[in-house]
């Protein structure tokens, strides 16, 4: 084996001068104008790119040129994760055999999927619909098409809407109570039920409510689910979401239960609110982190079944 090699360049100065003839010439001329044409064979097929002859029979083609595309369908492809200097694109791309719409043969070209990586993109497959991306400056070369790219099948539509919200009178008061570590509700003067949190009205009777009632931060689990889907407000997975009937309230509220393994939570279990440290309180229901068992005996299901 020789220990050294020596560089050698084979390059015809100025480049070869290729005459193209009438058929390829027509193709390249049309390409320079941003169109793709094929030629019809005697058998009626359309060759793209066109040749002077029918590759099946060797017979001369007709003189009928047909505009094809602009879209085409990928018939086969390869994926180039590490392009060479001679490749048309300098980032990962596909080589594709593309049958232009209206053509009976396929054109080889580069296909840019706008995606990179060692693995072929998932959408790269036979049947993918593609279109040429023409260069702005064209000279009459098959590289007047910079590459092909997929047809547009989706676009991302960012939307951002800004609001200025007010909680409303009743919820505002409820949240004020929360900021003081109190859980407030309203008693309906028609049905005498205590609704927590209050809404300023009774949904059953359709009347305004104003009589404020403070309820305890202890209550009973009426029913629950063990959630294995993470929730930003839950400490961990699994976590328990439970309906809790606070002592003094007539409607159960949905809240987290923690401080006990999920598989030990029970219907009728007695719980107490676990408040955040007072210095972290705001006007938020989030002042209550979750509910934890009090250790009192469970309430029989019969006593709570009308709240489920």
């Amino acid at each position: 084996m020789p220990s050294e090699t020596t560089a050698h360049v084979l390059e015809f100065p100025g480049g070869y001068t290729r005459s193209v003839g009438p058929v390829i010439g027509r193709f390249l001329t049309e390409l320079r104008s941003g169109r793709v044409v094929g030629v019809r064979t005697a058998a009626g097929r359309v060759l793209v790119p066109p040749t002077e002859y029918d590759p099946d029979t060797g017979d001369a083609v007709t003189d009928e040129f047909v505009e094809v595309g602009p879209a085409g369908t990928v018939e086969s492809w390869s994926w180039v994760p590490n392009p060479r200097a001679t490749h048309p694109l300098d980032r990962p791309f596909a080589w594709a055999l593309i049958r232009m719409d209206g053509a009976d043969t396929a054109l080889l070209h580069a296909l840019d999927l706008g995606e990179e990586g060692p693995e072929p993109p998932r959408r790269l497959r036979a049947g993918l619909r593609v279109r040429p991306r023409f260069r702005a400056e064209r000279v009459g070369s098959v590289r007047d098409i910079e590459c092909f790219e997929p047809e547009v099948t989706m676009y991302v539509a960012p939307t951002r809407l800004e609001y200025r919200l007010h909680p409303g009178r009743a919820l505002d008061r409820f949240l004020e109570g929360m900021s003081e570590g109190r859980i407030l509700g309203h008693r309906c003067e028609v049905c005498d039920k205590v609704l927590v949190p209050m809404k300023g009205l009774c949904p059953m009777d359709g009347v305004p409510t104003t009589e404020e009632v403070e309820v305890a931060d202890t209550g009973t689990v009426t029913t629950f689910a063990v959630n294995n889907i993470p929730d930003p407000r839950a400490p961990e997975v699994p976590f328990v979401s439970a309906y809790i009937l606070l002592d003094g309230a007539d409607v159960a509220m949905l809240a987290l239960v923690s401080g006990i393994p999920a598989d030990q939570v029970r219907l009728g279990m007695r719980v107490r609110a676990a408040w955040k440290p007072r210095e972290e309180w705001g006007r938020s229901i989030g002042n209550i982190r979750w509910f934890e068992p009090t250790g009192e005996p469970d309430v029989p299901f019969d006593a709570i079944k009308d709240y489920t």
Binding site: P167, T223, A225, N227, I229, D231, S241, L254, A255, T308
Partner: peptide, 22 residues
């Protein structure tokens, strides 16, 4: 401004299912 501590359709309906089972 929310008075709710839990979200999600499954989290909402699963407790009712448990109550039915009970």
């Amino acid at each position: 401004y929310s008075a709710s501590l839990v979200v999600g359709a499954g989290g909402y309906f699963a407790p009712h299912i448990r109550a039915y089972m009970q």
